[in-house]
Design a protein around this nucleic acid. Structure first.
Lengths: 221, 221
DNA sequence: TGTACATCAGTGAACGCGCGTTCACTGATGTAC
DNA sequence: TGTACATCAGTGAACGCGCGTTCACTGATGTAC
C-alpha cells in the first residue's frame, strides 16, 4: 500500500473550475479505494478515513466529493462493476462462435473474481443501504446478466446448447459461478477441481453444450 | 432482542464446581450470540460486547469462558454448524429412497440458509483467523459434505442418477446451492425462480436424477 | 502592470461512538475446624 | 452447630483504537479594476 505524500495541488496549472478540480480529487479517491480493495481484498477495508489516508488528503476532504461514506462506497461499486462488465464483454467479443463466446465470458467472470476478490466482493457481497428501493430493471447487474442470457440463447439458436429457457439456464449458470468463486475464496483448503474444468462440466450439464465446443480455441481467422 | 436483566446467580443452587458454573455461563453466551445472529442476520453483529450485553453480564466476564473474541466466534460457528448438519441429516433420514434423501437433504440446506441467514453466514461467509492451518481432512464441513457425496453415490448405485464421479457431482451441487442462497440474500430484487423448482432443475442437470424422482413424496410406509 | 479582493479546495482539531482488552476489586458460595 | 477463612464467578472503571462526521479555518488561485 502506497501512501502518496503529495498534496493535490501539483505542478500542473489547475483549472479554476471547481467541477474540474473536483473530478480530479474524485478520481484520486476512487483510485485510492481501488488500491485498498486490491491490497486487502475486503470491502470493509474501504473506510472513509482509510481512503483519505491512501489518497494523501485529510479525512474531511472526502465530503467535498461524496455526501457520506455510503455514497463513496457506491461510487466504488459503480466503477468496479463497470470494469467487471467490460472484462466479460471483451472476453466474449474475442470470438464469434456462440459456444466460445459463452465459455470465454464465463471464464472472464471467474478470473475477474479470482484475480480481484476485493472488487468482486464489492459487487456481489456487499449490501448498500440505498438499494432496496431499486426495481428489478434498475438493478445494477441486470445489463451484465442479459449478456449471459443472450449468450445462452445464441448457443441454443446455433444448436450448440440444449433447447430450453435461456433466462432460467443463465440464472443457473450465474448461481453456479458465484458459488464457485465465493466458496473457493472462503474455503481455500477444500480440494477444488481446476476452475476451467469445473466450469466446462457445469456449462455442459446446465446448458447442454457439448464438451467438445467448450475447449478454449484460438481466434477465428 | 431481549436483554435479560437477571444476574447469573439465580434461585437454583449453584454447584461449587467452577466447570459446571462455567458451562452454564458459556451456554448463556452462546445462546445470546444466537439471538443476535437471528435478529441481525449478520455475523458482524456478534461483537464481544453485544453478546455480553445480550446475556446480561459485564463485558469482561466473557473472558472467563473464551480466550478472546475470535474464540467466542469460533464456538458460535461450531454450534451453528452442528445444527446445520443435524437439520440436513434429519431431513435426509426421513426417506429411504436415495433420490428422495438427496432431494430432502438439499432442500434442508437451502431452507436452513433461508430461515437462518445469520447462522448460514457464520458457517460459510466468515473467515476465522485461526483456520488457515487446518488441513483438508480437518476442515469443518468435510463431514457434512461427505453426506452429500454419499447421497449422490447412492443415487448412482440405485440407477437414479447418471453414472459419474460422485465427489465431483457433489461439489457442483454444493457450489450451485451456495450460489443460490448467497445471491438470493444479496440481490433480493432479482426475479428468482421458486427455490424448490430451481433445485430440482439443478439436481436434474448436474446429477441426472429424473425430474419424476425429484418431487417431494410422503413418508415411506 | 500592480494591487486589493473573492473564491473555494482542502485542513486540523474536536465530537461521540462502539469496539476488544486489562486490571484490581467484590462479595456470595462453600469448606475447615 | 457456629465461626473464620478461602475460593473464584462476575464487576466497574479505564485504556487506546479507528471510525464517521462537524466546524470554523487557511491560504493559494484567479479576477476586477
Amino acid at each position: 500500500v502506497t501512501t502518496s505524500s503529495g498534496s493535490a495541488s501539483g505542478n500542473r496549472a489547475r483549472s479554476r473550475n471547481p467541477v474540474g478540480e473536483g473530478n480530479r480529487l474524485r478520481d484520486e479517491l476512487l483510485a485510492a479505494a481501488g488500491r485498498l480493495l486490491a491490497a486487502k481484498g475486503d470491502p470493509e477495508a474501504v473506510t472513509l478515513r482509510a481512503v483519505a489516508r491512501e489518497a494523501g488528503i485529510a479525512a474531511p476532504s472526502v465530503y467535498l466529493q461524496f455526501a457520506d461514506r455510503d455514497a463513496l462506497l457506491q461510487a466504488v461499486f459503480v466503477e468496479h462493476f463497470a470494469e467487471f462488465q467490460q472484462a466479460i464483454e471483451a472476453a466474449g467479443a474475442a470470438s464469434d462462435d456462440p459456444a466460445q463466446r459463452l465459455l470465454r465470458g464465463c471464464l472472464a467472470y471467474l478470473r475477474f473474481a479470482e484475480e480481484r476478490p476485493g472488487s468482486y466482493r464489492v459487487i456481489f457481497e456487499t449490501t448498500y443501504p440505498r438499494w432496496p428501493e431499486l426495481t428489478t430493471a434498475e438493478l445494477p447487474g441486470m445489463a451484465a446478466f442479459q449478456v449471459l442470457v443472450d449468450g445462452v440463447a445464441a448457443c441454443i439458436t446455433a444448436g450448440q446448447a440444449r433447447p430450453g429457457d435461456s433466462f432460467q439456464i443463465a440464472t443457473d449458470i450465474w448461481v453456479a459461478m458465484h458459488g464457485m468463486v465465493s466458496l473457493r475464496q472462503r474455503l481455500s483448503a477444500f480440494p477444488w477441481p481446476a476452475m476451467e474444468q469445473q466450469l466446462i462440466g457445469i456449462l455442459h450439464a446446465l446448458a447442454g453444450v457439448p464438451v467438445g465446443e467448450l475447449i478454449v480455441k484460438g481466434e477465428k481467422p
